[in-house]
């Protein structure tokens, strides 16, 4: 237990004292965080969603959103061919327009990391790998750690792990904490994104607690969802997580990123998220280093809107690549 606290301090860069000494002390801390009123949080998210982002602001937001996309394929049917095509799309989302920026990363299963790494080369687009028995997280710790090490060894710049929701919901907070720490350690130089799977946590209070747990245990990013559970990312869930990273920086000086993933399909939705980032966490988070969209179909809609801004015409899906 003593070592756990020590590593927590080391990995998160902040001395949490005895907070992570036991389930009981973690519970005291997490349950001492201010509650979240569901209706109020949802009303705030909806209110931000009514912002009207036009012309120059929209052009800015579309390019920023493209740069924040973790272009994702996480299917049983994934192949090296599919991944290579996705990588090409990530590097150059709109082949007809050299001014169109690349996405932030490509996100794949760990066995396809090497393929992605090779395809992305020196483009600057990162390889993110899901790990830790994604999406359920139901495997022994050493299996999860091996999965993580494999991904990093294959060249993953970023690791997207899942928390043990069963342990979290059963109140075994220390177990969740220590597992994140262990994955953090196994990730080496890679950035660690911790997936809370908010759709299974159900309440915003749980989302806030899981966010803090992950941040204290050393997460670089907190991420809403695997995309395999409904509901995936929502505006109010992301609101609560943005509040968490904002408050965490206030308290520790350390900045943590946020990644909503799953269900964000339109430019209109993406812009709502960016407005929320801007007004809740603050403009410091308006950067691919601190905010990402886990998405696949979103990119094409961003591209279509981008073309519409430039040409004044509405485009159609036939004019954008399907990868």
């Amino acid at each position: 237990m003593v070592t756990s606290t020590a590593t927590a301090a080391a990995s998160s860069g902040h001395d949490w004292g005895d907070v992570a000494a036991s389930d009981a002390s973690l519970r005291r801390f997490l349950h001492g965080l201010p509650g979240v009123d569901q209706v109020g949080a949802e009303a705030r998210a909806a209110g931000l969603g009514t912002r009207s982002i036009k012309t120059t602001a929209k052009a800015f937001a579309l390019d920023l959103a493209i740069r924040m996309v973790d272009l994702t394929t996480l299917e049983g049917q994934d192949t090296p061919g599919k991944v290579r095509a996705l990588c090409a799309k990530a590097i150059r989302p709109d082949p007809s327009d050299p001014t169109c920026p690349s996405t932030a990363a490509v996100c794949v299963y760990s066995d396809l990391v090497a393929t992605a790494k090779e395809a992305l080369g020196s483009s600057g687009v990162h390889v993110a790998s899901v790990a830790t028995a994604f999406p359920s997280g139901r495997a022994a710790l050493d299996v999860k750690l091996a999965d993580t090490r494999d991904a990093v060894a294959a060249g993953a710049d970023e690791v997207d792990m899942v928390i043990d929701r069963g342990a979290f919901l059963a109140g075994r907070y220390l177990e969740v904490f220590e597992e994140i720490e262990a994955v953090r350690a196994a990730s080496g130089p890679a950035h660690l994104k911790v997936i809370l799977e908010t759709g299974e946590l159900q309440t915003y209070d749980n989302v806030r607690r899981a966010s803090w747990l992950a941040m204290m245990a050393g997460a670089n990013f907190i991420k809403t969802s695997t995309g395999k559970v409904q509901p995936a990312a929502t505006l109010p869930v992301t609101l609560v997580m943005l509040e968490a990273v904002r408050d965490y920086r206030e308290q520790t000086g350390r900045m943590i990123g946020v990644k909503p993933a799953g269900g964000i399909r339109t430019s209109k939705d993406a812009i709502k998220y960016l407005v929320m980032v801007n007004e809740v966490a603050g403009p410091d988070w308006l950067d691919p280093d601190w905010f990402r969209f886990g998405a696949s179909t979103l990119l094409n809609d961003l591209l279509m809107q981008r073309t519409k801004m430039q040409t004044g015409r509405y485009s159609g899906p036939d004019y954008f690549t399907l990868d």
Binding site: I53, K54, T56, A57, K58, F60, L64, L274, P283, L286
Partner: peptide, 9 residues
């Protein structure tokens, strides 16, 4: 990064 909202009258 500054996200200036353009006028939306």
């Amino acid at each position: 990064m500054v996200f200036e909202y353009a006028p939306a009258p």
